[in-house]
């Protein structure tokens, strides 16, 4: 194994990993805010699928920029439904989330088929790629980090902003307070309902955005079932990332890179049965997670809150 071979392996695996990471990361970021405010959103998968379909259809008829907007808004709408049910009406968050996941998937396919007949293979224009001239030449990490779609850079910016807001601003403090001890937060004058509703809508918005990133951004098309479980991975990544945006970035990146790595190992044909390699990302994530054990789950996560209790 020559050095050049290893460098090429690492470079391409990292680049592929970053691409695989993106939708999971975006969805997980939104979920971080939702869960930090104390609300579990198990509907990410359906919201992503819904955003992917709506975003694609809009992009097809009105252009890719509007597709992005439409995807985000459709996700926000589902987030609103989740907020009404679980925050306002104190429905069990697990049921509410799972139901919306189901609804989202059904509506996604229904919408897509209302516009496109079976057998058509519509495509849309994706988003531009940006290559940063000097930095992308850095060996190994250059192409992965500096020669990517504009969506990637956008996401990094969102991660930074999300992290700053959550940990360095009053808004973030309020959100975290609501997630830890809503009663105390209410007593201090923070509107628990309002904060939670806003965070859940944001979570849904990001899920829808993640869907559009996947369909229009990365694949320039919509395929039924294309989310293929990323929503559930995002949920796990949020926990893995200890509910903080930068750790979530690391966690989803880890998962994406290991996934890309196992595909490459299969391609290289080193003799390991394919199915064991397919399991690798899940086992790896679990092992890493179990080893670093500090748990800082928001205290009030999953518990409904009643105003004035």
């Amino acid at each position: 194994m020559s050095l050049e071979y290893v460098v090429n392996l690492l470079t391409t695996v990292l680049a592929s990993g970053v691409r695989l990471t993106l939708p999971i990361l975006v969805a997980a970021l939104g979920e971080v805010y939702a869960e930090r405010s104390g609300v579990l959103n198990l509907g990410i998968e359906g919201m992503m699928e819904f955003g992917a379909a709506i975003g694609f259809v809009t992009a097809y008829f009105y252009g890719s920029e509007y597709g992005l907007l439409a995807g985000a808004l459709s996700g926000a709408f589902m987030g609103l439904l989740h907020a009404i049910l679980s925050v306002r009406l104190r429905v069990n968050q697990v049921i509410s989330g799972l139901t919306l996941a189901l609804l989202g998937e059904g509506l996604a396919i229904f919408t897509y088929r209302s516009f496109f007949k079976p057998g058509e293979a519509p495509r849309v224009r994706g988003y531009p790629f940006i290559e940063i001239p000097l930095l992308s030449q850095i060996p190994i990490i250059g192409p992965a980090l500096f020669d990517q779609s504009i969506l990637f850079y956008l996401t990094i910016v969102i991660v930074v902003i999300a992290s700053i807001i959550l940990f360095k601003t009053t808004i973030g403090l309020n959100i975290r307070a609501v997630g830890e001890n809503p009663r105390a937060a209410e007593a201090l004058g923070i509107s628990v309902y309002g904060t939670r509703t806003a965070c859940v809508i944001f979570g849904g918005l990001m899920a829808g955005l993640a869907g559009v990133f996947l369909s229009v951004g990365q694949m320039s098309m919509y395929y039924e079932g294309m989310v293929a479980g990323r929503g559930w991975i995002a949920l796990a990544i949020v926990i893995f990332g200890r509910w903080s945006p930068h750790m979530v970035l690391l966690g989803s990146f880890l998962f994406g890179v290991v996934d890309a790595f196992q595909l490459r190992v299969q391609a290289e044909g080193w003799g390991i049965p394919h199915q064991f390699l397919l399991m690798l990302p899940y086992i790896f994530t679990l092992v890493v997670f179990a080893c670093a054990r500090k748990a800082v789950q928001p205290e009030a996560l999953g518990l409904p809150y009643k105003k004035g209790e």
Partner: peptide, 9 residues
């Protein structure tokens, strides 16, 4: 059905 997986593969 995972289109992206196919891309990465």
């Amino acid at each position: 059905e995972d289109v992206e997986k196919g891309y990465e593969a």
